[in-house]
């Protein structure tokens, strides 16, 4: 609580001060020791790099080339996560819908996509879809083959977006269902329609709950975006692997690309924390 407590003329005894000080010191010691441990760990890793004679010159020479691939990685990830967000909201509404058609479509979507490897799905969008297009064109739908023959990047975005949308559907559904029935009843009692209650009352509360798991998905997607390299897109990991193989210096290249992915995820984690803090306004637990 923000209100300061009235002590009513009674002073805190000196021995209690000692206890409070000890608690504070313990927290300070913990912070200091964790920092020392982390720094030692970093030093140890750099020592290892030195021992195995990691070629930093080589890394420096190629870092620019590798980083140019980051554009593809970020483009694919952001567009795919946007698609996944839209699909997951539709999917969750479908899973919770009393309409048998909407419900079964959403259920089949989640089951099918979650039950098959992402790798297979990527190839499905890229390699198998044109064949489907040809078959459809043969039975008399003009132009469909061209429409279904996707370039690598759109195919990758669709594959990742549709796949993550299925996982996120379940996250969004769980978030919506975690809001107590009383909230929906209060909204209805005011005269709100189902969709007004969802939009104004249920979803904003569910959103706060699902931010951490959704961030998880986003972080996982940044890394899974490397799958588009399968289709020959020159994104981060594809470049690193190519160069590493060409000069027999895969260790340097892979360590470097791993570090770049990690940095991107650290930034995302920071953004997640900011969003969470913003959404937690009015929540007693954080004060």
């Amino acid at each position: 609580m923000s209100e300061t407590q009235e002590t009513g003329g009674c002073t805190i005894p000196p021995e209690a001060h000692a206890v409070l000080e000890e608690i504070e010191n313990r927290q300070k010691r913990f912070k200091r020791n964790t920092t020392i441990a982390l720094l030692s760990l970093t030093a140890f890793i750099f020592f290892l790099f030195y021992v195995i004679k990691l070629d930093f010159m080589f890394m420096g020479k190629w870092v620019g080339f590798i980083l140019t691939g980051m554009g593809f990685t970020l483009l694919v990830s952001f567009l795919a996560i946007s698609l996944a967000c839209i699909l997951s909201i539709l999917g969750a509404l479908g899973r919770l819908s009393k309409n048998p058609i909407a419900n079964s479509i959403a259920t089949a979507y989640v089951s099918l996509i979650r039950g098959t490897p992402l790798l297979v799905q990527v190839y499905m969008w890229y390699l198998a879809l044109p064949q489907l297009g040809k078959a459809l064109e043969d039975i008399g739908i003009p132009g469909i083959q061209n429409a279904l023959t996707l370039p690598a990047i759109p195919a990758g975005i669709l594959a990742l977006g549709v796949c993550y949308g299925a996982y996120m559907t379940e996250t969004v559904r769980a978030g919506i269902q975690s809001i107590t029935i009383g909230q929906r009843e209060a909204a209805k009692a005011l005269g709100m329609t189902e969709s007004q209650a969802m939009r104004r009352i249920i979803f904003p509360q569910a959103l706060r709950i699902i931010i951490p798991p959704i961030s998880n998905e986003f972080i996982a997607m940044i890394k899974d975006s490397s799958l588009v390299s399968l289709m020959g897109v020159w994104e981060l990991s594809y470049r690193a692997i190519k160069i590493g193989r060409r000069y027999f210096q895969s260790l340097e290249m892979l360590i470097m690309v791993a570090f770049i992915y990690w940095l991107m995820c650290v930034v995302l984690q920071y953004v997640q924390e900011k969003i969470e803090a913003h959404m937690a306004r009015g929540d007693r637990r954080v004060h």
Binding site: G182, E185, A187, K188, A189, Q205, G282
Partner: peptide, 18 residues
């Protein structure tokens, strides 16, 4: 529902609003 107000045992205020 617009003509009737209701108060619940568990209040059910919207926690994300002031």
């Amino acid at each position: 529902r617009k003509k009737t107000g209701m108060c619940f045992q568990s209040f059910n205020l919207f926690p994300h609003m002031t």
